[in-house]
Structure formats: C-alpha cells, structure tokens
Design a protein around this nucleic acid. Structure first.
Lengths: 285, 285
DNA sequence: TATTCATGTTTCACTATCTGCAATAATATG
DNA sequence: CATATTATTGCAGATAGTGAAACATGAATA
C-alpha cells in the first residue's frame, strides 16, 4: 500500500471514469486500470463495480475511500509537522497560470521564491486563464494566477497583483473606422469563457446588442494571434497585448465598451494555506 | 510512501540496530539501509542519527514514528472493516509452535481451519517451545502453541488443548536402577529455558538438591535425541516422546520428581483478538 | 441490422526500481 | 595491533511499473 495508490483510487472514485481520472493523474488508462486491479488484489476485495460503460463504488470501495482520504490528509499533516520541526521548507508546489502571466509577473515572483526556498520544487502548469480558479478550487493546483471573479468560490482567497483594462484590439493594418452602430456587424474574437467573456456578454445584454462572434478562443494569447492575422477585433486584457511577441502587429481599437478592468492576482484555497509551502508562497506575494 | 516502509522504519526505530531489524524483517542490512535512506530522501529529513556504531532517532524520526504506528494501526482497522463488510476472511496469519506441536495437534487444527477459511494464508514458524509466549508477546506472531506459564504476561489469553506430564526418560538400553539418593549425580539433560526448566529448577531448590546438568538444550525434540544416544536422563513433556520418531529408543525412567503436568494450549494477545483472522483461529480451537 | 463511438482491459516491450551478495569503511574490543 | 561488529556502497540479476496499441464490449446512430 502506498500513497500514490490511494491518490489514484480517490481520483477514480471521484470521477468514476478511467479516462477522466487518467487525464487528471497524467497516466494512461492502462496503468490506471492495473493500479486499481492491484489495489483490489491487495485488499482482497472489489473496490469498483465496472462494466464497459460504467464505474461505481462498491461498499468496500466506500469504506476504502474514507480511509484513503483520511490517510492522505494525515500524510499532509505529517509533512507539515516535519517541515516545522526541521525548519527547512521542501517538497513541491504546483502553480497554474496563463502564458502571459508566466511572461510577466511570474518570473519575478518565482525568482524571489526560489532564492528564499531553494528546496521547494515547483510544478508550473500553463493554460487558459479562465480555468485557473476552477483548477485551484478542484484541488488540482496549489495556487494560480487568475482574474478575480465575483463572487469568488467559497473558501478561496485572492491577492491582487495588478489591474489591467479590458481592451479591443485590431490588426495594425486594419484601417476601418468603427463606430457604435457597427457593434452587431463587428467580427469579434472573444475568450471562450472566463471573466472577460462574462463581462462582455453582460455588457451586450445590457445594451441589447446581438454581436457577431467570429471566433471563440481558449487562451488570451491566441486571440492576439488571430487578431494580428486579421480575423477580426479581439477582446483581451491590455497586459496580454503588452507581453505578446505580436504586440507590434495589433493596435488598440478606438471603439471601447465601458468594461471594468481585469483584476489579476494570486488565488489559493484558504484551507491550503495550512501547508507551510503554500503559506510561504502566499506570504511572499 | 508505503506500509512496508513504515513497518521497516518502526522495526528499526524499536531495535535501533540495522542488524537486528534486518533479522526481524527477514531482509539484508543492505536493503534495510537503503530503504531507510529512501524514506529519509522522500521526507527530506534525516530520521536516524547514525555513525558506524550506533543508531538513534532524530526529532523528526520521533514524529515519524508516531505517525507510522498510527498509520499502520489504521491500516489494520481498515482491513478488519473490509473483511467484516465483505464477510470473507482473507489475509495472513502467523503461527508459532514447536516441532512436536506441529506433529501432534497442529495438523488437525490447521486442516479444519483451512477448510473453514481457505483464503487465509498461514505463516507457520517452528522453534523452541520456550520462546512461544515471548514471540506472541512481542507481536512477532499472531498466535502460538505454548505451555501455560504462571503468571501469564499481561493481556495474554490462553486456551488449554491438553495436559501432558513432565517425565524423565533414559535410553532404552540404560539398565541403571536409579534411586532418590542419586539425584545429585544423575546426568541430566534439561531444556535451556521455559516452563519445564523452571519447574525442575524450583523442585530442586525446594529439595535443596544441586543437580548435575549434563546438557542444556533449546528445543524439547533435541533432548529426546540426546537421551536416545545415551548422554543421560532427560526431562520432557510426555507428548514430546509420544510424537518423536525416536520414541522406541527411549523409556520412561522409574524415578520421577513430583512435577505438575505440562499444560499445552494456544495463546494470543487479547488485543489481537480484534482482528477477525485471529478471532477466527481462536474461536475454532 | 450494420456501423461508429466510447470506454475499460489485456498484451507486449521497455525501463526503472528493488534486492542481496560481496567488498568497503569505520570503530569498538581484547 | 588484530579481530569483530556494523552501516554503507558497487554491482548484477530479478521484479515490478509503464504506455502504446490491440482488444472486447456495449451504447448510440444510421
């Protein structure tokens, strides 16, 4: 029995899908399947009732799930008290942020952090900004750089790093002189989801405009790419443009809806602050 | 992190000797040394302060020891509740007994037990009868067939299987006609330790006799061997002779000290009865 | 009914890890 | 100073873990 097996089991128990659990755990379903089979063998009991279409916990699985959670938590507590005891922080911390964030503030934050705590290994995942809060909320990441959304999920705390206005951008060579009447015909490139998208959606709804959405993109950086290629007018936080290698290819559009600025900061689940590692990162922002 | 590492760690922490722990765990000191090193690496902390002559727990080791014991206990509890849940007993049970016991009653007990609980794998260790109670008391074995001693260690329960008188035996060809005056010169072959030895020692002390001890032997069976070879007069429980392949080579000596019969039975730590496996074995005696 | 799709399991080849033997290093003991 | 004791390390063989791809099964769809 080892902690890894417990983690694998808990993830499968929570997703009830080998495929999904495999993705979350960064392992093939084959490995996952065998891990579970081995666990069942070791315990002498079936943990999941599964056929080709469904996966369900058995009673024994339910008991084992409680045990596993408890056991993993005890392990966390142990690591924490060992770190307190030895007064040296070590272990690993996972951070999620967008590519833009990794270009801009993350570098400074991490350089500083690394000097303070050289023995903490960092696990950096980049991806769509919009998923940051979800991932932290689901426990997939310890901390994330995210846009503040209201309301924040319960138990999540947020520290603002900076504000950046939401701006419309067009290709540098686009000479069109947009005016307010054109909103419905403006070829828009919007984030697929996230705070920026909700802001603009709300804004259109309020004005009773039905916009033409040319493309929906996951990841702000790709919006800049598309805009620079002339696909249309894009909505992004200004900081994304500033840090984009394509900054010279786009320009800020004269036409600007009146949207609240994008508030970028670090978020973390309050309960995770009990971990000295997370605490150290948080305290340093 | 796995349970095996915890078990290894706890054993080393209890013995504070790689050599001793290695013997208890049936593994080489090399493997043991590396297991501990790996554990320390994983935890990022030294668990033992060790030089070439001594091993001592660090503070972190102390913390980890508490965790380990707790964790192993939780694991036991889990296995128990899973077995209760699935109503099928499986796992492994360790049994200690003398060679004689394995010849005589053990066969019947185990045959029966195996039929009732085919999925419980048995770990049978044979050795000197005198160590049986100690080994159970130290937690090295789940159950043992042993001679009742008074007082029994605290928390140990005992079920009598049979009584067998303690008898003196000589070689079949020994024609000597011993009488009570000869006690001091009688060449005695006695168990090195254990109930039989204490009984005879007490008996001699009471009579103020200083006996001639020809040989002290660990393991009753070997006493029969030595007696049959003519080395002297041996003291053993009658049942040992009855089950010995050398039974025909020895005879019961006319001279008999008045010793209480040897009481053979099964012993187990009371707290171990909480395990369904041990319980099943115990209930079946 | 046939086809496609989704999803858990098995096979297979490869790799990493574990294990014990033997040699080594360091130190107490006589 | 020689010997015994004890933890660690080098090495090679054994064991276990891993993902790609093929497989098996059953639902959804045409």
């Amino acid at each position: 029995m080892n902690n890894r097996s417990l983690k694998i089991f808990v993830t499968l128990a929570e997703t009830l899908s080998f495929t999904k659990a495999g993705i979350l755990l960064h392992m093939s379903t084959s490995t996952l399947s065998r891990s579970i089979a081995q666990l069942e063998d070791e315990l002498g009991t079936r943990l999941f009732e599964r056929d080709n279409r469904s996966v369900a916990l058995t009673n024994a699985g339910q008991i084992f799930l409680e045990y596993s959670r408890e056991s993993l938590q005890q392990w966390e507590l142990l690591l924490n008290s060992l770190m307190t005891e030895t007064k040296s922080l070590h272990g690993s911390l996972s951070i999620y942020c967008s590519v833009t964030a990794s270009y801009s503030f993350l570098y400074d934050i991490l350089t500083n952090f690394r000097q303070l705590h050289p023995r903490i290994s960092l696990n950096l995942h980049t991806g769509d900004h919009a998923q940051a809060i979800d991932r932290v909320n689901q426990g997939l990441e310890d901390v994330a750089i995210a846009a503040r959304q209201t309301p924040m999920p319960a138990g999540m705390v947020f520290k603002t790093i900076t504000h950046s206005p939401l701006i419309l951008i067009t290709a540098v060579q686009d000479e069109t002189d947009y005016d307010d009447q054109q909103w419905p015909r403006l070829p828009l490139i919007l984030p697929e989801q996230g705070v920026a998208r909700r802001r603009i959606d709300d804004w259109f709804a309020e004005k009773a405009i039905t916009p033409t959405i040319q493309a929906q993109v996951a990841g702000h950086e790709a919006i800049v790419s598309m805009v620079s290629l002339g696909f249309g007018v894009g909505l992004v936080p200004k900081i994304v443009v500033e840090n984009s290698p394509l900054a010279g290819q786009v320009k800020i559009c004269a036409l600007q809806p009146d949207l609240a600025a994008y508030e970028v900061g670090v978020c973390v689940l309050e309960k995770r602050l009990r971990s000295p590692l997370v605490q150290a990162f948080w305290g340093q922002i």
